[in-house]
Write a protein that binds this DNA or RNA. Structure first.
Lengths: 228, 228
DNA sequence: TGGCTTATTATGTCTGCACATAATATACTG
DNA sequence: CAGTATATTATGTGCAGACATAATAAGCCA
C-alpha cells in the first residue's frame, strides 16, 4: 500500500463502509502514513484528491473529517456541437439561417454589459443530426474583442466551431432552463410552438470583455446527461 | 516564482494571451522548472492541475500541449434542497403528499434494475420556498439496501435530507430534461398543466445495488446555474 | 472573568532525488 | 525492407526532510 491511488481507494472504502462516518474526524496524515507504510506526501495526495471531490473536509490544525452533507457535483461536458452529434452516431449538418450586424436589444446588452450602440454580430443557425434539426443556435458576438468576426464566413463553419479557435475566453457562465419554445424557434426546429425545450444560455468573457453570448435551444425530448 | 499557484497562473496567462496557442507543444517540465527557478515537482503540480481542467493535454514522452478543442465543463452543484432554498433567502418548508410501499412500475424497476415484485418505498413530497411550492420530489427507495426506509418518519424530515445521512452511495447519474408538467405535478406546484418544467432525474447506487431514484420537478421559470 | 499573547498542531507546499511507466525514435536483424 | 528489440525521453509518482500557514489551545495578565 504505497501508491496514492491505493490509499485513495482504501479511504474511500472506509467512508463507504461507514467505518468512518459523516462528520467523523479521521487520523492525521502522519498517523495514516505510518499505518499505510508510506510517506506523508503520498497520504496528502490521496486525501487532497478526496477533498477536491467534496468527500472530505480538511482544515489546518482542525484535521480532516468526512463531509457531513456532501454536495453532489454533476459535471456536464459541453463539447463542440458537431462532436456531440457525431458521438450520437448521427451525420452532422449545419445551416446558417441569418446573419446581421447592428445594435443589440437591451437584454443582450445587459448580459454582455455593453454600451448602447456597440454593433454586434448576430447569428441564427441550425445544427442538424442526420439532416433533421437538432438544435438552434442564437448567438451574439462582440467583434470588438473578436477580430474577424464580421468577415468570417459563417455559412461554411458554425460560429460554435469558429469561436473555439478564434476567441479564447477566461471564464463564463451557463444557465439551463426549460422554456416553451417561441414560434420562430419551434419553426426552425420543426416542432410545434410552445413545446417544452431545454435552453442553454452561455456567456463567455475574456477578462472583463464580453466575447459572446449564445442561446442553444434543443428539440423537445432532449436529455442532458451526467455521472455523479 | 516558486509556488505552484504562481506557475499555474503564469501558464494560464500564456495560454490566454495565445503566447502558447491551442495545439502547441510547450516546454517540458525540466526546462520550465529551470526557467521559473523551482523544482520540477512544482511545475508538475501546476501543469497537472491545468490538465485536470482540460486546458492541457499531457502524454508521457509526447510532452504537454495546449488542448486543441477544450471541452467546456460545467459543474452543477446539487445541494440539499433545504440549503438551495435557504441560500436563495427564502424560508424552507416541506410537506409530504403521499407515502406508499409496494411494487414499482416497470419504468422504475428498469431504472433501478430490480426484480419484479421487490417492494419499494414511494414518496411524493413538495418542498416550499416561503410557503410557495418550489419543487416536487417523486422518489422511490429500495429498502433492501436502505435499512429503516420503511419506518422513517418522512412527514417531519424530507427523504432528500434523510437519505444523505442514512444511505451513502458510491456513484450515480443525473439526467436533465425539459418536460411539459403532467396534471398531477402541475397541481402540486400550483401551476397550469402542460407548462415547461425543468425535471432532474437522479439515480444512485451503492456498488451494484440501487439505492434510490428521484424525479425533481421544478416550477416553470426555474434556472440552473453554473460557472465555466 | 475577559482579552491578549504565545505555543502547539495538522495541513499545505517546496525541494532534490530516485525510479516507474508509457510512448516514441533508433538500431538491428533476418 | 519489414518486423522486432532496444535506447531515449517526458511525464508520473514516491520519499524524506524542511519550512509555511492557519486554526486552535494554553497561558498569562489585568
Amino acid at each position: 500500500m504505497n501508491s496514492w491511488q491505493e490509499i485513495h481507494d482504501e479511504v474511500l472504502r472506509r467512508i463507504h463502509t461507514r467505518q468512518w462516518k459523516p462528520g467523523d474526524l479521521i487520523p492525521n496524515e502522519t498517523d495514516l502514513a505510518r499505518e499505510f507504510g508510506c510517506a506523508r506526501a503520498t497520504v496528502n495526495r490521496a486525501l487532497r484528491t478526496l477533498a477536491e471531490t467534496g468527500l472530505l473536509d480538511r482544515r489546518r490544525k482542525a484535521g480532516t473529517r468526512v463531509t457531513l452533507h456532501p454536495v453532489g457535483k454533476a459535471v456536464i461536458e459541453i463539447p463542440l456541437i458537431r462532436r456531440d452529434i457525431e458521438d450520437r452516431g448521427a451525420r452532422y449538418g449545419y445551416r446558417l439561417i441569418s446573419r446581421q450586424i447592428g445594435p443589440a436589444p437591451p437584454s443582450i446588452r445587459a448580459a454582455l454589459r455593453i454600451e448602447t450602440g456597440t454593433p454586434l454580430v448576430h447569428l441564427l443557425a441550425c445544427h442538424l443530426a442526420d439532416a433533421r434539426p437538432y438544435l438552434l443556435e442564437d448567438r451574439w458576438i462582440n467583434p470588438a474583442v473578436v477580430p474577424g468576426a464580421e468577415t468570417a464566413d459563417f455559412t461554411r463553419i458554425s460560429a460554435n466551431e469558429w469561436l473555439l479557435t478564434h476567441a479564447p475566453y477566461t471564464h463564463g457562465d451557463l444557465t439551463i432552463a426549460a422554456e416553451p419554445l417561441p414560434p420562430q424557434t419551434a419553426a426552425a426546429l420543426q416542432v410545434a410552438a410552445g413545446e417544452a425545450g431545454l435552453v442553454l444560455t452561455r456567456t463567455t468573457w475574456d477578462h472583463t470583455a464580453a466575447v459572446t453570448t449564445v442561446r442553444l435551444s434543443h428539440r423537445p425530448g432532449h436529455l442532458l446527461h451526467s455521472a455523479l
